[in-house]
């Protein structure tokens, strides 16, 4: 199955893209996908990054084909 991942802020910067389509093997929760994605990226504080699935903040949900996932780091600037 495939999911679309959207990256924001310093996660997008580390991934060097705003969006990509990933092919997943087997059932993954949103939280597992987040760990998998962030492990390959150089981000100092991975715990602070939140995950939304189909525009809903939720890390426990099991992903299904066609889901849109967003990785959201907090921003501090003002």
């Amino acid at each position: 199955m495939t999911v679309t991942i959207k990256y924001f802020g310093l996660v997008a910067e580390a991934a060097e893209k705003f969006e990509e389509i990933l092919e997943l093997n087997g059932a993954l929760t949103a939280s597992e996908l987040k760990t998998q994605c962030l492990n390959s990226l150089n981000i100092a504080d991975k715990d602070s990054v939140q995950i939304a699935v189909n525009q809903n903040l939720d890390d426990k949900i099991t992903l299904k084909d066609g889901d849109e996932v967003a990785l959201l780091p907090p921003f501090a600037g003002g």
Binding site: L10, A44, D45, D47, S48, Q50, L57, P73, P74, F75, A76, G77, G78
Partner: peptide, 18 residues
């Protein structure tokens, strides 16, 4: 409820540009 845990990465506009 969005960000239950704080992060050390206090990145300001001064640091990143805006």
């Amino acid at each position: 409820c969005v960000f239950p845990k704080s992060t050390r990465q206090n990145i300001s506009c001064e640091a990143t540009g805006v």
